[in-house]
Design a protein around this nucleic acid. Structure first.
Length: 596
RNA sequence: GCGCCCGUAGCUCAGAUGGAUAGAGCGUCGGACUUCGAAUCCGCAGGUCGGGUGUUCGAGUCACCCCGGGCGCACCA
């Protein structure tokens, strides 16, 4: 049980006592606990007296006084309970609570922050699912990182989570890819053999002209041999298509791997067609009278579920639509035992949500069991101007380009830093700059590296390992910043839980950045105050141990270890490296700058 | 025209589900290294929270209406 839950329980009990004893009468309210904005107001604040004022028809301050009088603090956790302002109840824990908390954190280790493991709902997160017809671009990258972080977040919060990539290996775009591969392979053959005639370039819009197809074509020649020629109909090119798709899948997986993302499942759209799952899904919907025939096509009456118009599932030609496959796909997800589906889509797909939720309902599921999160676009800034993006323009920045330039950690940090439902600007001029500058991703990692560095130095130079936790030792932590940082560490499990429920990984980033800042601020100021954690080199003469406050140092080593641990947990949660050391940068100003 | 997302400091964004004096980073300006790591820290300046009306003890947060930006409105995937 975390401290926030503890204080909530105490106050809930107090309010209940007031009601039972007739101090005032009102329906039992929900007791909400938060942090006051100003730390001098206490560790936690509660506004329940304000909320009760209206139903109880009493002044909030009177209510607050009654509630405070009923607080039972059997374990003497509380140092102060004040009533402030219009009727806030401000709570301050005694210092020993924070000292004990340090022991809890160190004992929990990697599981500090984890929620209680639960069996249900089983969650399937589907994300990226970009067509396997080319490299991932920056927009895909954002969805990929957000989806991955969300999966990590929900797992840490305790949910059973599976991640999945829906591979669109059926449909017209795959034939287009096969045609492109065929053309490139024949082109390569003609280039090395004069007796061959070069193939005719496919019509514009009928193929993918990108260089990556040439790479795949070369591999095809190496591994399979000469491609089939002639009229590129689907049947003749199906082997070619399968090869091309697999090449792209491998390439995409490699890109994602560089971003520290891997999927539990790659789900093939084609398998739905081949297994008959698609036919089955439509048959079920027909039997439940959700389909009708009109104009030679088969329609899903999605308007029954709030969609603005009905949708075709089988074309006049007899070919099922992409939507039909998606219905079968989601039916399959449910059939595999997942009760809660999370789909992460690009913002341009929002019009697709009502029909998909309608399909879920038509299959007997709730609209809520299918949760669609829309990741907004990334606007690229180059030379101070927004770039027009899009495949049609042939200019889009790939994930690989970005990762190569800035590294996976910085790229991930950038995508996770903001709410995903707001558009962001990605300034290439800054991100791709060789100058590392001030970088919040590096700054945050540096907090962890610095903590590691202190511990390493204590051991290597002073022979001091992190001691075993001991409450008397922890009680030596009296610096206000030390206690304030312990409060932050205590928040981590709460932040994890709230961020998971709200689907907002960026809250972890904000929290971690704040922690790093608090730690670095403390650390730099200690030096100014001549109150360092470890004795400076100048003081390590013979017998320094007698003059140095060894217990305070040990307590601080414990404390630094807790910061290291929780920082590491948070970085891992975000999918970032937790470096133990970062090479020192040269200061550009000291190496030959001009006189001012 | 209809629908979804977004408008908070010069720029990029937080604001923990309606609370107390709206916060960071970058940028500007001024300071702090003989010392446990200066990839650091401290300080100054910078705001009618796009505008308006409403809901109530209380609104950046909720509702409605405007203004502005982005994206959708396929028998494409």
């Amino acid at each position: 049980m975390n401290l926030q839950s503890t204080i909530q329980a105490i106050l809930t009990q107090a309010v209940q006592s007031c009601l039972d004893e007739g101090d005032f009468s009102a329906p039992m309210p929900e007791v909400v606990i938060g942090h006051p904005k100003r730390p001098e107001h206490g560790d936690f604040a509660c506004n329940v007296a304000l909320a009760l004022a209206r139903p109880a028809k009493r002044k909030p301050r009177d209510l607050a006084e009654a509630i405070v009088a009923r607080i039972e603090d059997s374990e003497s956790l509380l140092a102060a309970t004040d009533i402030a302002g219009p009727g806030f109840i401000n709570i301050r824990f005694s210092e020993s609570v924070w000292h004990r908390l340090l022991g809890d954190i160190l004992a929990a280790g990697e599981s500090w922050g984890a929620g209680e493991t639960r069996e249900s709902p089983r969650v399937l997160i589907e994300f990226v699912s970009a067509n396997p017809t080319g490299p991932l671009h920056v927009g895909h990258g954002r969805g990929a990182v957000v989806g991955d972080a969300l999966a990590r977040l929900l797992r840490l919060a305790g949910y059973p989570v599976t991640t999945e990539y829906y591979l669109n290996d059926a449909g017209s775009q795959v034939q287009k890819l096969a045609r492109s591969l065929q053309y490139r392979a024949l082109e390569l053959l003609a280039a090395r053999d004069d007796s061959r005639t070069a193939p005719a370039e496919p019509a514009e819009g009928e193929w993918y002209p990108g260089d990556y197809v040439i790479v795949a074509a070369q591999r095809y020649l190496d591994e399979v041999g000469e491609p089939p020629s002639g009229d590129p109909t689907a049947g003749q090119l199906s082997d070619l298509a399968a090869f091309a798709v697999e090449q792209q899948r491998i390439s995409i997986a490699a890109t994602l791997d560089r971003l520290n993302i891997s999927f539990d499942v790659w789900f093939s759209e084609k398998s739905l067609h081949e297994s008959g799952a698609l036919t089955e899904a439509l048959a079920e919907m027909r039997s439940k009278r959700h389909l009708f025939d009109q104009d030679g096509s088969v329609w899903f009456r999605s308007t029954d579920f709030g969609d603005e118009k009905d949708r075709v599932v089988v074309r006049k030609s007899g070919e099922p639509t992409y939507f039909a496959a998606d219905i079968a796909y989601h039916r399959n997800k449910y059939d595999r035992g997942f009760d809660h589906l999370i789909n992460i889509w690009g913002a341009d797909h929002h019009g697709y949500i009502p029909r998909m939720k309608g399909a879920a309902q038509a299959m007997g599921r709730t609209a809520e069991s299918l949760e669609v999160l829309l990741v907004q676009f990334v606007a690229l800034i180059k030379d101070g101007e927004k770039m027009k993006q899009g495949k049609r323009l042939g200019q889009f920045v790939t994930v690989d380009e970005v990762v190569e330039q800035v590294g996976a950690d910085v790229a991930r940090y950038f995508f996770l830093e903001r709410k995903f439902d707001a558009q962001v600007d990605f300034d290439l001029d800054v991100a791709l700059s060789e100058d590392p500058k001030e970088n919040p991703a590096k700054y945050t990692q540096y907090g962890h590296a610095r903590a590691c560095s202190i511990l390493a130095k204590a051991e290597s130079e002073l022979g001091m390992k992190v001691p075993a936790y001991d409450l008397a030792l922890a009680a030596r932590l009296t610096h206000p910043d030390e206690l304030a940082i312990l409060r932050r560490l205590a928040d981590f499990p709460v932040i994890v839980s709230e961020a998971a429920e709200a689907r907002e990984p960026h809250r972890i980033v904000t929290w971690l950045h704040d922690l790093a800042r608090a730690f670095q601020s403390y650390y730099t100021r200690l030096r100014r105050d001549n109150d360092t954690v470890l004795p400076p080199a100048s003081q390590r003469d013979a017998g320094w141990q007698q003059r140095w406050d060894m217990d305070k140092m040990k307590a601080r080593l414990l404390w630094v270890d807790a910061i290291r641990l929780v920082s590491r947990n948070a970085l891992t949660l975000l999918g970032l490296e937790a470096p133990t050391y970062m090479t020192r940068l040269e200061d550009p100003d000291t190496s030959g700058g001009q006189d001012a």
